[in-house]
Design a binder for these strands. Structure first.
Lengths: 141, 141
DNA sequence: CGTACATCCTCTAGTGACTAGAGGAGCAAG
DNA sequence: CTTGCTCCTCTAGTCACTAGAGGATGTACG
């Protein structure tokens, strides 16, 4: 169990930037670590794990509040994982929805770009479609 | 050419909320309209078109600065539409990238949810994968 | 032991694109 | 004339950071 890791090293190891780590501490997502004589933050392996968990969760698109819940669940191994399952499932539904919406958007943008006359603005499909909602097939989100 | 439209009506017609219209004016995206004697904003059809253009562009995910460019292009029908094409193409590339990333994310979340034991946290795949980056197949954006 | 230089500290303010709310004025209908 | 709606300005809050100022501490080298 390593102790006394500096913020710079825990940042490197976890992939979370130094100011972000301090920000997480400020909002209470990461516990305030003990300080050295010179007032520097002193982390241990447990903090590194926590930060890695956070970074990974953020990469997967979870919000800070969701991560708060997930972290507290992680600390209680005997509790039902129902809540974690619910958070992940809801998030999955969001992601699916977003993909559907973005795919519709992609088709619309393709139609715009392909239809572009590459000439003057007057005959440009890009501007044309944006100006006239009726010509657009995208009604997503 | 209708004139003297209230902010409420132009909001209804364009689908842009009243405070958002005022915000667009503040950041210079929409020109400041003339005022009535009672100091109310007085819009015309041209403003409505502009707002519709903006709303539609926002729905398609364009940023305000991009919309600024697109709007100024729309006002110059004889200019080459190269710039508009470039903006749309770049945006299309972004969207494709985002879809790819979200799709990878979707698979990872599915793996988490499906693998969930629906029992205690200790054996929960959701928490497990989040905690251990090595078990995750998602490494996107 | 001195001196660079890297790393750390706190604090405030800025980002994008709005949204919420306070506190007040104008306007149309009954 | 009053009720209730819309409108006005202004400030501050949202989310998840990021940037920068201004200063203290720690470390490597000569």
């Amino acid at each position: 169990m390593q102790q006394g890791i500096t913020i710079g090293n825990v940042s490197q190891a976890s992939g979370v930037k130094v100011p972000t780590i301090r920000y997480y501490e400020q909002i209470g997502l990461l516990p305030s670590p003990p300080r050295t004589e010179g007032n520097r933050r002193s982390y241990d392996d447990r903090d590194l794990e926590r930060l890695t968990f956070i970074r990974h969760s953020r990469e997967l698109g979870f919000e800070i509040d969701e991560i708060r819940t997930l972290l507290s669940l992680q600390d209680q191994p005997n509790v039902s994982c129902e809540d974690a399952d619910a958070i992940a499932s809801r998030h999955l539904a969001d992601v699916k929805q977003k993909i559907a919406s973005l795919t519709a958007l992609q088709h619309e943008l393709e139609r715009m770009v392909v239809g572009c006359s590459h000439g003057r603005v007057e005959t440009c499909k890009v501007i044309d479609i944006l100006a006239d909602h009726g010509k657009c097939r995208f009604h997503g989100e």
